[in-house]
């Protein structure tokens, strides 16, 4: 049963969801798209970010966005350590990326279990004054708990894009997977660049996690649902293109929202894998791919 109101509402919710998905996918776009590091464990860092926001909110009533930003440097350091371990155990030895995949998959489960032991299986949520509110434009309702993540996601994407194109580190990050010897011949240490970039990717998970717990309650295993999404977005957007990631995130958000509205929420998870398969079959380079 189709109605225009329903469609418009679903469309707007999809766009808002897309902005949030962009925030979740940034880390994958950097690690997988720019560094050739298949960090399949990225979603669990997002969940970790959610729990960080939850703990501070629960104890001190701290705004989730604030804790997302506060924890970003800590997450950056976690990323630095994770990359160093990955580099020393796999990349430096020239191991195939497939083994790295196993490493990150293992990391995902270890962190998930750790969270489970610490916080249990209960859904956790946070409180902030704006979370329950919404604005209405005609028949279309815009919930703040979706609007805020979308705006923050867009800002974060913009910030990363600017960083990559305007700074020495940023340009080096964009080039590091293309030819690391060429970088060394310009006086750049590629391992250092990759470490910084990976740390940056994990730092985005701190903010993305805070956004996630704003949108819906969180328990340790829901990160798995995001593995398909983030890879679908990274591949659809085209590896190495942050602008492509944003476009792809919006497309997936809208597709999921429309599917959930008209066919039921249980189908929405299938959308991301459907898109992933379709892109790999039709245009493996993605929308803006290399």
């Amino acid at each position: 049963m189709f109605s225009l109101d329903l469609f418009l509402n679903a469309l707007v919710a999809g766009v808002l969801l897309g902005g949030f998905y962009a925030a979740v996918s940034l880390g994958i776009s950097i690690a997988f798209g720019l560094l050739d590091v298949v960090n399949i464990g990225h979603p669990i860092f997002v969940i970790l970010g959610s729990y960080a926001a939850f703990v501070l909110n629960d104890a001190y009533g701290l705004d989730p966005l604030l804790s997302g930003v506060l924890f970003a440097p800590v997450f950056f350091l976690i990323g630095v350590v994770v990359y160093q371990v990955y580099y020393l155990s796999f990349e430096r030895k020239g191991e195939s990326p497939l083994r790295g995949l196993v490493f990150f998959f293992g990391l995902l489960f270890i962190i998930e279990v750790a969270l489970l032991l610490k916080f249990g299986v209960d859904y956790r949520l946070i409180e902030a004054p704006y979370i329950g509110r919404s604005i209405h434009i005609g028949e279309v309702g815009i919930a703040f708990r979706l609007l805020v993540p979308c705006v923050v996601g867009l800002l974060m994407t913009l910030a990363i894009t600017q960083f990559l194109s305007r700074t020495f580190y940023g340009r080096a990050i964009k080039g590091v997977a293309q030819d690391s010897l060429a970088l060394r011949l310009m006086g750049i240490d590629p391992v250092r660049i990759k470490t910084i970039a990976f740390g940056l990717g994990i730092a985005t998970a701190s903010v993305a996690g805070a956004l996630l717990i704003m949108i819906s309650p969180v328990e340790p295993s829901i990160g798995r649902a995001y593995i398909g999404r983030v890879f679908a977005i990274a591949v659809l957007g085209g590896l190495g293109s942050i602008g492509g990631t944003l476009t792809a995130a919006l497309i997936l958000g809208i597709a999921e929202s429309l599917t959930a509205t008209f066919s039921g929420p249980s189908w929405s998870l299938a959308v991301s894998f459907g898109i992933l398969l379709l892109v790999l079959a039709v245009r493996p380079a993605g929308l803006f791919g290399r």
Binding site: D179, A182, G240
Partner: peptide, 16 residues
Amino acid sequence: LLPRLTVRENLLLGAY
């Protein structure tokens, strides 16, 4: 060269 970076980006990286 870094083939998937622009001419300008290649030049700027040279000044690292």
